[in-house]
Simulated scan of single mutants.
Amino acid sequence: MQTDTTTGAAITFDAVGKAFPKKGGGSVMALEDISLSVEPGTITGIIGRSGAGKSTLLRMVNGLEKPTSGAVTVAGRDVGAAGAADLREIRREVGMIFQHFNLLSSRTVRENVALPLEISGTPAREIAPRVDDLVERVGLQDFRNRYPAELSGGQKQRVGIARALATQPKVLLSDEATSALDPETTQTVLELLGDINRDLGLTILLITHEMAVVRDIASHVAVIEDGHIVEDGSTYDVFTAPQHPTTQSFLSSVTGVTLPHFIARQLRDTRPEGNAREVMRITFAGENATDPLIAEMSRDLGLQVNILAGAVEEIGPRPFGNLLISVDADGAEQARAFLERNQQRTEVLGYVG
Protein backbone atom coordinates (compact mmCIF):
# COMPACT_ATOMS: atom_id res chain seq x y z
CA MET A 1 0.00 0.00 0.00
CA GLN A 2 1.42 3.31 -1.06
CA THR A 3 0.50 6.78 0.14
CA ASP A 4 0.09 8.17 -3.35
CA THR A 5 -2.31 7.58 -6.21
CA THR A 6 -1.57 4.39 -8.14
CA THR A 7 -3.33 3.94 -11.48
CA GLY A 8 -3.75 0.20 -11.01
CA ALA A 9 -5.26 0.51 -7.54
CA ALA A 10 -8.71 -0.83 -6.78
CA ILE A 11 -9.46 2.17 -4.55
CA THR A 12 -7.59 5.45 -4.23
CA PHE A 13 -8.04 8.38 -1.89
CA ASP A 14 -6.26 11.38 -3.35
CA ALA A 15 -5.84 14.32 -0.91
CA VAL A 16 -9.37 13.71 0.38
CA GLY A 17 -10.97 16.10 2.85
CA LYS A 18 -14.45 16.09 4.32
CA ALA A 19 -16.12 18.90 6.25
CA PHE A 20 -19.51 18.79 7.95
CA PRO A 21 -21.51 21.91 8.79
CA LYS A 22 -21.84 22.87 12.45
CA LYS A 23 -24.94 24.19 14.12
CA GLY A 24 -24.75 27.93 14.27
CA GLY A 25 -22.45 28.18 11.26
CA GLY A 26 -18.99 27.11 10.24
CA SER A 27 -17.83 23.56 9.70
CA VAL A 28 -15.83 20.80 11.32
CA MET A 29 -13.24 18.73 9.45
CA ALA A 30 -13.88 14.99 9.71
CA LEU A 31 -11.08 14.08 7.28
CA GLU A 32 -8.11 16.06 6.04
CA ASP A 33 -5.59 15.36 3.26
CA ILE A 34 -6.16 11.59 3.11
CA SER A 35 -4.04 9.91 0.42
CA LEU A 36 -4.09 6.13 0.25
CA SER A 37 -4.11 3.38 -2.35
CA VAL A 38 -5.72 -0.03 -1.88
CA GLU A 39 -4.33 -2.59 -4.30
CA PRO A 40 -6.55 -5.15 -6.09
CA GLY A 41 -7.04 -8.43 -4.27
CA THR A 42 -5.75 -7.20 -0.91
CA ILE A 43 -7.45 -6.98 2.46
CA THR A 44 -6.81 -3.56 3.95
CA GLY A 45 -7.84 -2.59 7.46
CA ILE A 46 -8.48 0.98 8.53
CA ILE A 47 -8.28 1.19 12.29
CA GLY A 48 -9.13 4.10 14.54
CA ARG A 49 -10.98 5.07 17.66
CA SER A 50 -14.61 6.21 17.64
CA GLY A 51 -14.86 9.57 15.93
CA ALA A 52 -11.51 9.25 14.14
CA GLY A 53 -13.19 9.47 10.70
CA LYS A 54 -12.95 5.87 9.52
CA SER A 55 -16.68 5.38 8.82
CA THR A 56 -16.82 8.62 6.83
CA LEU A 57 -13.84 7.41 4.78
CA LEU A 58 -15.51 4.08 4.05
CA ARG A 59 -18.82 5.66 3.03
CA MET A 60 -17.04 7.69 0.36
CA VAL A 61 -16.13 4.53 -1.55
CA ASN A 62 -19.76 3.83 -2.51
CA GLY A 63 -20.85 7.44 -2.69
CA LEU A 64 -22.84 7.60 0.54
CA GLU A 65 -20.63 10.59 1.38
CA LYS A 66 -18.90 12.92 -1.05
CA PRO A 67 -15.52 14.51 -0.36
CA THR A 68 -15.32 18.24 0.22
CA SER A 69 -11.92 18.20 -1.46
CA GLY A 70 -9.81 15.66 -3.30
CA ALA A 71 -11.11 12.56 -5.06
CA VAL A 72 -12.06 8.96 -4.32
CA THR A 73 -11.78 6.55 -7.23
CA VAL A 74 -12.90 2.94 -7.60
CA ALA A 75 -11.25 1.09 -10.49
CA GLY A 76 -10.26 4.46 -11.93
CA ARG A 77 -13.72 6.05 -11.72
CA ASP A 78 -14.24 9.18 -9.63
CA VAL A 79 -17.03 8.34 -7.20
CA GLY A 80 -17.71 11.90 -6.04
CA ALA A 81 -18.04 13.20 -9.60
CA ALA A 82 -20.23 10.34 -10.84
CA GLY A 83 -23.73 11.08 -12.09
CA ALA A 84 -26.73 9.04 -11.01
CA ALA A 85 -26.33 6.33 -13.67
CA ASP A 86 -22.57 5.98 -13.15
CA LEU A 87 -23.02 5.91 -9.38
CA ARG A 88 -25.50 3.03 -9.66
CA GLU A 89 -22.96 1.12 -11.73
CA ILE A 90 -20.18 1.82 -9.21
CA ARG A 91 -22.40 0.64 -6.36
CA ARG A 92 -23.03 -2.64 -8.19
CA GLU A 93 -19.29 -3.22 -7.99
CA VAL A 94 -19.04 -2.29 -4.30
CA GLY A 95 -20.68 -4.62 -1.77
CA MET A 96 -21.08 -3.64 1.87
CA ILE A 97 -21.57 -5.53 5.12
CA PHE A 98 -22.71 -3.78 8.29
CA GLN A 99 -22.16 -4.02 12.02
CA HIS A 100 -25.86 -4.58 12.77
CA PHE A 101 -26.62 -6.79 9.74
CA ASN A 102 -29.49 -4.61 8.34
CA LEU A 103 -31.58 -7.63 7.33
CA LEU A 104 -35.29 -7.39 6.55
CA SER A 105 -37.14 -9.29 9.27
CA SER A 106 -40.02 -10.21 6.96
CA ARG A 107 -37.80 -11.94 4.41
CA THR A 108 -36.10 -15.32 4.65
CA VAL A 109 -32.35 -15.88 4.25
CA ARG A 110 -32.79 -16.52 0.53
CA GLU A 111 -35.06 -13.52 0.10
CA ASN A 112 -32.63 -11.20 1.90
CA VAL A 113 -29.76 -12.37 -0.30
CA ALA A 114 -31.91 -11.92 -3.41
CA LEU A 115 -32.88 -8.33 -2.57
CA PRO A 116 -29.99 -6.50 -4.33
CA LEU A 117 -30.57 -8.59 -7.45
CA GLU A 118 -34.25 -7.73 -7.48
CA ILE A 119 -33.48 -4.03 -7.05
CA SER A 120 -30.93 -4.09 -9.87
CA GLY A 121 -33.43 -5.73 -12.25
CA THR A 122 -31.67 -9.07 -12.60
CA PRO A 123 -33.93 -11.55 -14.49
CA ALA A 124 -35.77 -13.88 -12.12
CA ARG A 125 -34.35 -16.98 -13.81
CA GLU A 126 -30.82 -15.85 -12.88
CA ILE A 127 -31.59 -14.92 -9.28
CA ALA A 128 -32.43 -18.34 -7.81
CA PRO A 129 -29.22 -20.20 -8.83
CA ARG A 130 -27.00 -17.28 -7.80
CA VAL A 131 -28.72 -16.98 -4.42
CA ASP A 132 -28.44 -20.72 -3.78
CA ASP A 133 -24.74 -20.63 -4.64
CA LEU A 134 -24.12 -17.72 -2.25
CA VAL A 135 -26.13 -19.27 0.59
CA GLU A 136 -24.06 -22.42 0.25
CA ARG A 137 -20.81 -20.44 0.07
CA VAL A 138 -21.51 -18.87 3.47
CA GLY A 139 -22.57 -22.22 4.96
CA LEU A 140 -26.29 -21.51 5.45
CA GLN A 141 -27.87 -23.98 3.03
CA ASP A 142 -29.73 -25.63 5.94
CA PHE A 143 -31.10 -22.23 7.02
CA ARG A 144 -32.13 -20.85 3.64
CA ASN A 145 -35.81 -20.59 4.53
CA ARG A 146 -35.33 -19.26 8.06
CA TYR A 147 -36.11 -15.69 9.10
CA PRO A 148 -33.57 -13.39 10.80
CA ALA A 149 -35.24 -13.82 14.18
CA GLU A 150 -34.40 -17.53 14.00
CA LEU A 151 -30.66 -16.95 13.39
CA SER A 152 -27.68 -16.32 15.64
CA GLY A 153 -25.59 -13.16 15.27
CA GLY A 154 -22.92 -14.99 13.30
CA GLN A 155 -25.52 -16.50 10.97
CA LYS A 156 -27.06 -13.08 10.40
CA GLN A 157 -23.67 -11.68 9.45
CA ARG A 158 -23.17 -14.55 7.02
CA VAL A 159 -26.45 -13.57 5.38
CA GLY A 160 -25.15 -10.00 5.19
CA ILE A 161 -21.96 -11.21 3.51
CA ALA A 162 -23.90 -13.31 0.99
CA ARG A 163 -26.16 -10.35 0.22
CA ALA A 164 -23.13 -8.08 -0.29
CA LEU A 165 -21.75 -10.58 -2.83
CA ALA A 166 -25.01 -10.90 -4.77
CA THR A 167 -24.17 -8.35 -7.46
CA GLN A 168 -20.71 -9.91 -7.98
CA PRO A 169 -18.81 -6.84 -6.74
CA LYS A 170 -15.12 -6.22 -7.21
CA VAL A 171 -14.79 -4.50 -3.83
CA LEU A 172 -16.25 -5.48 -0.46
CA LEU A 173 -16.59 -2.92 2.33
CA SER A 174 -16.86 -4.06 5.93
CA ASP A 175 -18.20 -1.53 8.44
CA GLU A 176 -17.24 -2.91 11.89
CA ALA A 177 -18.74 -6.20 10.72
CA THR A 178 -17.52 -8.25 13.69
CA SER A 179 -17.78 -5.78 16.59
CA ALA A 180 -21.24 -7.03 17.61
CA LEU A 181 -20.11 -10.67 17.68
CA ASP A 182 -18.48 -12.80 20.35
CA PRO A 183 -14.78 -13.72 19.85
CA GLU A 184 -15.41 -17.26 18.57
CA THR A 185 -18.01 -16.10 16.06
CA THR A 186 -15.77 -13.23 15.03
CA GLN A 187 -13.05 -15.71 14.13
CA THR A 188 -15.35 -17.79 11.92
CA VAL A 189 -16.59 -14.68 10.10
CA LEU A 190 -13.01 -13.50 9.53
CA GLU A 191 -12.08 -16.92 8.17
CA LEU A 192 -15.04 -16.70 5.78
CA LEU A 193 -13.91 -13.26 4.56
CA GLY A 194 -10.40 -14.62 4.07
CA ASP A 195 -11.77 -17.52 2.01
CA ILE A 196 -13.82 -15.11 -0.12
CA ASN A 197 -10.77 -12.93 -0.71
CA ARG A 198 -8.71 -15.92 -1.84
CA ASP A 199 -11.41 -17.67 -3.87
CA LEU A 200 -12.89 -14.65 -5.64
CA GLY A 201 -9.88 -12.32 -5.69
CA LEU A 202 -12.09 -9.72 -4.07
CA THR A 203 -10.57 -6.50 -2.70
CA ILE A 204 -11.73 -6.01 0.89
CA LEU A 205 -11.59 -2.71 2.76
CA LEU A 206 -12.61 -3.00 6.39
CA ILE A 207 -12.82 -0.57 9.25
CA THR A 208 -12.43 -1.61 12.85
CA HIS A 209 -11.31 -0.42 16.27
CA GLU A 210 -9.86 -3.86 17.04
CA MET A 211 -6.22 -4.49 16.19
CA ALA A 212 -6.81 -8.24 16.58
CA VAL A 213 -9.12 -8.13 13.54
CA VAL A 214 -6.39 -6.45 11.50
CA ARG A 215 -3.83 -8.99 12.73
CA ASP A 216 -5.99 -11.96 11.81
CA ILE A 217 -7.10 -10.95 8.32
CA ALA A 218 -5.54 -7.82 6.81
CA SER A 219 -2.46 -7.73 4.59
CA HIS A 220 -2.27 -3.94 4.90
CA VAL A 221 -3.35 -1.44 7.52
CA ALA A 222 -3.87 2.30 7.84
CA VAL A 223 -4.20 3.96 11.24
CA ILE A 224 -6.45 7.02 11.38
CA GLU A 225 -6.53 9.58 14.17
CA ASP A 226 -8.44 12.88 14.25
CA GLY A 227 -9.16 12.72 10.54
CA HIS A 228 -5.55 12.05 9.48
CA ILE A 229 -3.77 8.85 8.51
CA VAL A 230 -0.89 8.72 10.95
CA GLU A 231 0.66 5.44 9.80
CA ASP A 232 0.17 2.87 7.05
CA GLY A 233 1.92 -0.06 5.46
CA SER A 234 1.93 -3.83 5.42
CA THR A 235 0.36 -5.28 8.54
CA TYR A 236 3.53 -7.15 9.40
CA ASP A 237 5.71 -4.03 9.15
CA VAL A 238 3.32 -1.89 11.18
CA PHE A 239 2.91 -4.54 13.88
CA THR A 240 6.61 -5.22 14.25
CA ALA A 241 7.78 -1.60 14.10
CA PRO A 242 4.94 0.80 14.99
CA GLN A 243 6.03 4.43 14.70
CA HIS A 244 3.10 6.48 15.92
CA PRO A 245 1.89 6.56 19.56
CA THR A 246 -1.69 5.76 18.45
CA THR A 247 -0.50 2.60 16.68
CA GLN A 248 1.61 1.64 19.67
CA SER A 249 -1.40 2.07 21.94
CA PHE A 250 -3.55 -0.17 19.75
CA LEU A 251 -0.83 -2.81 19.65
CA SER A 252 -0.39 -2.88 23.42
CA SER A 253 -4.09 -3.71 23.74
CA VAL A 254 -3.91 -6.64 21.33
CA THR A 255 -0.66 -8.18 22.56
CA GLY A 256 -1.14 -7.43 26.23
CA VAL A 257 2.58 -6.64 26.46
CA THR A 258 2.64 -3.90 29.06
CA LEU A 259 4.86 -3.47 32.08
CA PRO A 260 3.49 -4.81 35.37
CA HIS A 261 2.25 -1.88 37.45
CA PHE A 262 4.80 -2.39 40.23
CA ILE A 263 7.61 -2.11 37.65
CA ALA A 264 6.04 0.83 35.79
CA ARG A 265 5.77 2.78 39.06
CA GLN A 266 9.51 2.39 39.69
CA LEU A 267 10.64 3.13 36.14
CA ARG A 268 13.04 6.07 35.69
CA ASP A 269 14.30 7.78 32.54
CA THR A 270 17.88 7.97 33.79
CA ARG A 271 20.03 5.31 35.40
CA PRO A 272 20.09 5.60 39.20
CA GLU A 273 23.25 5.30 41.29
CA GLY A 274 24.28 1.88 42.59
CA ASN A 275 22.80 -1.42 41.44
CA ALA A 276 20.39 -0.77 38.61
CA ARG A 277 18.67 -2.77 35.91
CA GLU A 278 17.78 -1.61 32.44
CA VAL A 279 14.25 -2.40 31.23
CA MET A 280 13.97 -3.02 27.50
CA ARG A 281 11.45 -4.12 24.93
CA ILE A 282 12.55 -6.71 22.38
CA THR A 283 10.61 -7.19 19.15
CA PHE A 284 11.26 -10.64 17.70
CA ALA A 285 10.76 -10.68 13.96
CA GLY A 286 12.36 -12.02 10.81
CA GLU A 287 14.32 -15.23 10.32
CA ASN A 288 15.42 -15.51 13.97
CA ALA A 289 12.03 -14.78 15.53
CA THR A 290 11.63 -18.27 16.97
CA ASP A 291 15.25 -18.86 17.96
CA PRO A 292 16.08 -19.22 21.72
CA LEU A 293 18.00 -15.94 21.70
CA ILE A 294 17.38 -14.99 25.33
CA ALA A 295 18.78 -18.30 26.56
CA GLU A 296 21.80 -17.93 24.26
CA MET A 297 22.37 -14.33 25.34
CA SER A 298 22.20 -15.22 29.03
CA ARG A 299 24.62 -18.10 28.54
CA ASP A 300 27.12 -16.37 26.26
CA LEU A 301 27.22 -13.04 28.12
CA GLY A 302 26.72 -14.39 31.64
CA LEU A 303 23.72 -12.11 32.20
CA GLN A 304 20.78 -12.70 34.51
CA VAL A 305 17.66 -11.87 32.53
CA ASN A 306 14.34 -11.19 34.21
CA ILE A 307 11.34 -11.66 31.88
CA LEU A 308 8.61 -9.16 32.82
CA ALA A 309 5.98 -9.78 30.13
CA GLY A 310 5.72 -11.25 26.66
CA ALA A 311 3.54 -12.56 23.85
CA VAL A 312 4.02 -14.33 20.53
CA GLU A 313 1.71 -13.51 17.61
CA GLU A 314 1.48 -14.50 13.97
CA ILE A 315 0.93 -12.22 10.98
CA GLY A 316 0.15 -14.38 8.00
CA PRO A 317 2.85 -17.07 7.85
CA ARG A 318 5.38 -15.04 9.84
CA PRO A 319 5.75 -15.04 13.63
CA PHE A 320 6.61 -12.06 15.73
CA GLY A 321 6.82 -11.50 19.44
CA ASN A 322 7.21 -8.76 22.02
CA LEU A 323 9.16 -9.36 25.20
CA LEU A 324 9.82 -7.02 28.11
CA ILE A 325 12.93 -7.87 30.11
CA SER A 326 15.30 -6.34 32.63
CA VAL A 327 19.06 -6.94 32.74
CA ASP A 328 21.87 -5.59 34.87
CA ALA A 329 22.56 -2.07 33.58
CA ASP A 330 26.31 -2.75 33.31
CA GLY A 331 25.65 -5.52 30.77
CA ALA A 332 22.70 -3.92 28.96
CA GLU A 333 24.73 -2.46 26.11
CA GLN A 334 26.21 -5.91 25.38
CA ALA A 335 22.73 -7.43 25.51
CA ARG A 336 21.33 -4.93 23.03
CA ALA A 337 24.28 -5.42 20.69
CA PHE A 338 23.81 -9.21 20.82
CA LEU A 339 20.11 -8.95 19.99
CA GLU A 340 20.59 -6.44 17.20
CA ARG A 341 23.29 -8.64 15.64
CA ASN A 342 20.58 -11.29 15.49
CA GLN A 343 18.21 -8.88 13.70
CA GLN A 344 15.95 -8.16 16.67
CA ARG A 345 14.81 -4.64 17.54
CA THR A 346 15.40 -3.31 21.04
CA GLU A 347 14.03 -0.27 22.83
CA VAL A 348 15.18 1.04 26.22
CA LEU A 349 12.12 1.78 28.36
CA GLY A 350 14.00 3.00 31.43
CA TYR A 351 15.72 1.87 34.60
CA VAL A 352 14.81 0.47 37.98
CA GLY A 353 16.92 0.52 41.13
Rank of each mutant, 00 (worst) to 15 (best):
T7W: 00
F13D: 02
K18Y: 01
L31K: 02
I34K: 08
S35D: 03
S35Y: 07
S35P: 10
G41W: 10
T42H: 13
I46D: 06
I47F: 08
A52T: 00
L58F: 02
N62C: 03
L64K: 09
E65Y: 11
S69L: 12
T73P: 07
A75C: 14
V79M: 10
A81K: 14
A82G: 05
L87P: 05
E93Y: 12
I97Q: 06
F98A: 06
F101P: 02
F101H: 03
L104C: 07
S105G: 15
S106Q: 12
T108D: 03
R110W: 06
P116Y: 03
L117R: 01
S120A: 15
G121A: 00
G121N: 08
E126S: 12
A128D: 14
V138E: 06
G139R: 08
Q141L: 12
A149T: 09
L151H: 04
P169E: 11
K170D: 14
L173T: 10
D182L: 06
P183G: 02
E191A: 15
R198P: 12
T208V: 05
E210K: 11
M211N: 09
A218D: 08
H220F: 11
V223T: 01
E225M: 05
G227E: 05
H244Y: 04
V254L: 02
T258K: 13
T270A: 15
E273Y: 00
E278P: 03
V279T: 08
F284N: 06
A285C: 10
T290N: 13
T290P: 00
P292F: 05
P292W: 09
I294C: 12
I294G: 10
E296L: 13
E296P: 03
S298Y: 02
R299G: 09
D300R: 13
G302S: 04
L303R: 10
N306P: 00
N306C: 01
N306T: 13
I307V: 15
L308E: 11
A311D: 13
E314C: 13
R318H: 14
P319Y: 12
F320C: 09
G321C: 02
S326H: 00
G331T: 03
N342C: 00
